[in-house]
Structures are given as C-alpha cells and as structure tokens.
Amino acid sequence: MKLHAISIFFLLQLLYLQNVAAQNIRSIFLFKDVMKSNTTALKTSGFNTLIMFGIGILDNGDIKYYSNTPGSQDVVVASGGSYVGGAALADKVRSFKTNTTGINRVEISMNSQHVKNLMSRPGPGAETPLYRNFAALKEAWTLDAVNNDDEVLYDVASTVAFAKMLGKIGYKYTGAPYTNAQFWQSLVRQVNSGLKEPDLLLDRMYLQCYDGGANNNPAGWANALGIKVVPIVWVTNDSKPVYGVSAAQARTRFSGWSSSQKSALAGGGYWNDFDIEKMGLSYRDYGAVLTSVFP
C-alpha cells in the first residue's frame, strides 16, 4: 500500500510539472543575425525558448539562413543532405542551450515558399533532399522545432505533409498566426490527428498580438484552435512604433491576459531581439516580465 501511494504521489507530481511546463513558455523571436546578437543576455534574462527568424527553403530543397542584419550575409546552411553553414554558426546556435543558460528549446522560423511544390515533387520521403537537409540541420544545430510563419500560401494539404515529414525527423512543429483562423484550425486538427499531449506534433501556437494581429484575443484563438496559445507582443521599435510596447506595458498586457484568460495561455513572448538591441532596451527587463507572469 505504501509503495502504491508513493507511485501515485510521483505520478501526480509528474502531471503537475507537465502542467506547469505547459504554462511557462517564455519566448523571443531572433530577428538579428545570431552571430551578432547578445548571446549571453538571451541565455540569462529569463527566456526559455528562442525562435530564429528566418530560415528559407530554396526551390531545390536547400535551406538558407537569412541574417536580416546590416553587414551580415545570407548563407545556405544545408545542401545535398549535409550541413554546409560553417562551424562558427553551428557552434553559436548550439551554445544557446549549453553552459549557463535558461534556454531549453530552439526553433527555426520559416515562411511557406516552395513548400507546396516540394511536397508535390519529389514529396516528403526520407530520401528527398529536403528531408535530408532538415535532418542534417537538426543535428548540426541541435534544433527542437520548426515554426511556420506562413502569411501568404495557407495551403493545408502541403503544410500537413511538411509538418509530418518534420515529425519523422524528430522536430516539433509550431505556428505563428495573426489571421486566417480557419487555416490554422484545420492545420492543428490534421497534424495532431490521433495524438495527445504531451506527444502533440504541432504543440505550440505563437499568436501575433501586434501589427496585423493587434486586436487578436488569445482566448478566442485558443478556443478555435483547441490548443493553448502563446501571445507575442512587439517590443519598443522605430519601424512601427505604434505597435511597440515597453517592458512596463508588456507586463500590463500579459498580466491582464493571465488574469482573465489563464486557461487559454501557455506562456508569452516577444518580437524581436533586433529591436531590443537597436533601441538600447533591456533584455533583463523584458525577460523579468515573463518570469513574473509565467514563472
């Protein structure tokens, strides 16, 4: 009886920890070239998830990293089934989860370009260049997930095929919606068909709550998708300052959502590190907001 009680206790503890983990995603999108961003600050300011923007698929199945930073060059990182992005870049990405760090998940974010064509021909098979390139990149960068930032194509069938291909390689799949809830709803349902938590393939939705998604309501999206969402706000910036929020304003927004819509939230996050550094803002201040609201 005592052993039985102990087993139940540890089972309950495990379920509790899984539930807590599902509520405390603290993310930031990396728009700046990771070779030039403040790696130490990203690792030690309270974030636990980094989403590297942006990765692109070329028409032949090669994968390119777009640095998005003045003075940096875009670079093909996987070709012919091998990693070709260089040791320095691989070491940098791998370092996010090593030594003194709070990061436990690194994702790459990409749009939908060439996905439909490549899923049609040559398809998602393990022998295809695209499959082999994503496998090589995962190993080289120790990646955890691929983020879908589709804002144009919205083709359900090819996106589902692509997500399932990534799942076979060992990736998780995530979304970054701001509109077209019907597409994202269909995607979640089909990608996760037959799966249950914590083994969902499409396991996170980073909901854009700025710019075109400024009026998005996390609870409404969570209800429509059948999965908790991670609302993303834009830090103070000079590109579209009307959509930027200070750390204090971010705290107000996240706290408000957490107070009124807690069951809909899996955490919170920001777009993007480039503006934090460009505007002379504090990673620690923005990170502290997330650790406070989503501990």
Rank of each mutant, 00 (worst) to 15 (best):
M1V: 10
K2G: 15
L3N: 12
L11I: 10
L11A: 13
L15E: 15
Q18L: 09
Q23T: 03
N24R: 10
I25N: 13
I28Y: 05
F29W: 14
K36E: 07
K43D: 00
T44Y: 11
G46K: 04
F47W: 05
I51S: 09
M52K: 12
I57Q: 08
D59N: 14
I63E: 00
K64F: 15
S67A: 05
T69Y: 01
P70L: 05
S72H: 09
A87N: 05
A88G: 07
A88Y: 04
D91Y: 09
K92R: 11
R94D: 07
T98D: 15
I103C: 05
I103M: 10
N104F: 13
R105N: 04
V106M: 11
E107P: 12
I108K: 13
S109E: 12
Q113D: 15
K116P: 15
K116L: 14
K116F: 15
K116I: 15
M119Y: 05
S120K: 14
G123M: 03
A126L: 11
A126T: 11
E127L: 08
Y131L: 04
Y131E: 07
R132N: 02
R132H: 03
A140Q: 02
W141M: 03
W141D: 02
N148P: 09
D150W: 05
Y154N: 03
D155Q: 06
A157D: 15
K164M: 06
L166D: 02
K168A: 11
K172F: 04
K172G: 07
Y173R: 01
Y173V: 06
P177K: 03
T179E: 07
N180Y: 06
A181P: 13
Q190H: 14
S193R: 15
G194T: 15
K196M: 13
D199K: 08
D199S: 09
L202E: 04
R204E: 13
R204F: 12
R204L: 09
M205S: 12
M205T: 05
C209L: 11
C209G: 04
D211M: 08
G213Q: 00
G213K: 01
G213E: 03
A214N: 03
N217T: 10
G220K: 12
G220S: 13
N223C: 10
L225A: 07
L225G: 10
I227T: 08
I227W: 07
K228N: 14
V233F: 11
V233Y: 05
W234Q: 12
T236I: 10
T236W: 14
T236R: 06
N237E: 01
D238A: 02
V242E: 14
A247E: 09
A248T: 15
Q249T: 08
T252I: 04
R253G: 10
S255L: 11
G256H: 06
W257K: 06
S258E: 08
A264S: 05
G267H: 05
Y270Q: 04
N272G: 13
I276T: 06
M279H: 00
S282W: 01
G287Y: 02
A288Q: 04
L290Y: 00
T291R: 06
P295E: 09
